[in-house]
């Protein structure tokens, strides 16, 4: 399983999202992401980072414009087509979003829901193949020994690994990670970021990560996208991004709150 994926491209064309309260979440976005890229999205809170990620799997609907995944427009209403698209897109959340009272394995199997007949999932009769996929996903993040432990018993870092394993169990072409390290301590943060980078390299899964720490973005990003008030204000390689670029993205001088390791502030 989990052979290199040849797919996983995303294209935004003149995409706009305005929330019912008038807030602009996305403004005239034109963006192309190639299969297998590791993209870090930065911007201050409210800049539209989550909006961008959640538009890719249709959790946020567009006001106008178009988003395509592998050349197919993201459906803008609930239904079979949208489920078929989401099946191939894994998502990782800041608050992990696990069923705490269930085992790690049960949580990872949720990533297989769209892959098996409905009645099998309903009565917990998972095919051997799907259980194997789930186990291999746990192997990939190195916590197979926790498979039968309740999710509530795990540390934050371990819970996020279960979150990653659930996304991997989908055998996705794309992974969306929405502030995946925001509720973790610095050491665990680096481990989780390394996991995400490694998985991207090993499996070629297109990966979009929202981060609010600049140093993390620079350290782990391959390509950095900067957003400000829903608009694309920076798009370039992580290697060449400068402090001035960051100032422009944030619209202000940055402080030690914007970095994880304080000694990096230059």
């Amino acid at each position: 399983m989990n052979k290199i994926k040849s797919q996983g491209s995303i294209r935004f064309t003149d995409a706009n999202i305005v929330y019912p309260n008038g807030t602009v979440g996305m403004k005239d976005l034109n963006l192309e992401i190639k299969p297998g890229e590791f993209v870090v999205i930065v911007g201050s809170s409210g800049a539209g980072k989550s909006t961008l990620l959640r538009a890719v799997n249709g959790l946020n609907r567009m006001t106008s414009g178009r988003i395509e995944v592998d050349g197919v427009a993201v459906p803008q209403k609930d239904g079979r087509e949208l489920r078929v698209l989401r099946k191939r897109i894994g998502m990782i959340f800041q608050d992990f979003r696990l069923v705490k009272r269930l085992t790690v394995m049960s949580n990872v199997l949720i990533g297989r829901l769209a892959h098996v007949p409905g009645w099998r999932a309903m009565f917990n009769l998972w095919p051997a193949h799907d259980k194997e996929v789930a186990m291999q996903a746990l192997e990939r993040v190195g916590i197979t020994e926790k498979a039968w432990v309740k999710a509530s018993q795990l540390s934050g870092g371990q819970q996020q690994r279960v979150g990653i394993a659930r996304a991997l169990a989908q055998e996705p072409a794309i992974i969306l990670a929405d502030e995946p390290v925001a509720s973790l301590d610095p050491v665990t943060t680096h481990q989780i970021m390394q996991d995400l980078v490694r998985i991207n390299r090993e499996l070629g899964i297109t990966t979009l990560v929202n981060l609010h720490f600049l140093d993390l973005a620079k350290k782990y990003g391959q390509r950095i996208i900067g957003l400000r008030f829903g608009e694309l204000v920076y798009d370039g390689s992580a290697a060449s991004v400068t402090d001035d670029d960051f100032r422009n993205i944030y619209g202000r001088d940055f402080t030690e709150d914007d970095v994880l390791d304080e000694d990096v502030v230059g």
Binding site: L59, L85, R86, M91, D95, G111, L113, G118
Partner: peptide
């Protein structure tokens, strides 16, 4: 509603969102 949304994001149906989320 975080967990139900996570089930939706995996491609789960309404019934699965209710059952698992």
């Amino acid at each position: 509603m975080g967990m139900p949304e996570a089930v939706r994001a995996c491609g789960g149906t309404w019934l699965q969102m209710v059952q698992f989320g």
